[in-house]
Design a protein around this nucleic acid. Structure first.
Lengths: 195, 195
DNA sequence: GTCTATACTTAGATAGAC
DNA sequence: GTCTATCTAAGTATAGAC
């Protein structure tokens, strides 16, 4: 915790920040450690002092997000299983998503789906996402309920790239919540076309 | 058409099929030409007889899909701008998505978003997707309309992984359409929470 | 804590024989 | 149309000096 040495203790977090940005922009596989090192003005070997591998960099910035998501899930399980509880859960999810570093880590996973598929850290994130969707649709675990819950989550994520034109972050966030809530409110109902 | 020579004239399409599968499963960057060649029992050099580069393989199986999407867009523009027209457009989009090779190419792009972002073929696909969403929300080009249109499209895509449990392809397709239609039907309305 | 230097592997791509 | 052989570049990762 307390840095006694005179070292620049934030090199580690600067690596994380640059790596996250490049991984998200160009893709995990396409981004080389050389490129990350160059952007920081250090050498590849320096990276290996702070992280034992390329994968390890990913795991480092995912770990924190996993903790926060786990707490969210615990909390969501205690909310009522009705529309009010669902709205509350989604509101917290949205705050988590748009808050501080949340968005960027989520965007990393959106841009690197094969990482989600094949890396342990990604699989854990995916697992947590499904758990949130499961909790949102636990009053109606039918396929229709599942799909609506997943779409509600995606309304939050997708608002980032689905909305063109000038729109502020607050407006974007509010709108995503509104549309998502509409979906959540219909959980438990029968889809229109299947009657 | 008619193969006069003794050559296996379908090697080209076998390469496309294997490449598409591996690119989707493992990611474009992670999949090497060596791996593709090995699966086919040929050498890397053979691939270069049929395709001038790795990118070229992608472009080859995207070209056909682009044509089909362009025809869909042309047709959608002639549909009425009301809920009936939107439903018709989405039905055709869904048929396109679930039909023959459509799904796999779309899944390739879902698993390789950075390809969408940086490769010409991907940018064209992205452009077509946005055009469809634009047409779906042209009666209400507000942010709420845009978001609902994009979510309707994503209901079709997302039904593939959002729905667990035993469910047939037809059920999946029908359900996705139902939930998507609900979203389309609300285009033009004001989101619930913003009043 | 960061460097230089390097080992080791693999990548995409090409030349030319058959 | 497919092969062998090879080029060049780049990748991840490590050893050891400072």
């Amino acid at each position: 915790m307390v840095r006694v040495t005179g070292s620049t203790g934030d090199t580690r977090s600067r690596i994380q920040a640059v790596a996250l940005e490049l991984f998200t922009e160009q893709g995990y596989e396409k981004t080389s450690l050389r490129e990350i090192a160059e952007r920081l003005g250090v050498t590849k070997a320096a990276l290996y002092y702070h992280f034992k591998s390329k994968d390890d960099i990913v795991e480092s910035f995912v770990a924190d997000r996993l903790d926060r998501l786990d707490r969210l899930i615990e909390w969501a399980a205690e909310q009522p299983a009705d529309a009010t509880g669902r709205r509350a859960t989604l509101r917290r999810y949205s705050a988590e998503f748009f808050g501080d570093g949340g968005r960027s880590v989520m965007q990393f996973f959106e841009q690197n789906r094969t990482v989600v598929k094949h890396h342990p850290a990604g699989q854990m994130m995916r697992d947590r996402m499904l758990r949130v969707a499961e909790l949102l649709s636990r009053a109606d675990p039918s396929p229709a309920g599942q799909l609506r819950a997943m779409l509600a989550l995606f309304a939050v994520h997708g608002s980032l790239f689905a909305l063109r034109g000038e729109i502020s972050g607050e407006e974007r966030q509010a709108l995503a919540l509104d549309v998502a809530n509409e979906l959540l409110d219909r959980i438990g109902e029968t889809p229109a076309g299947s009657g």
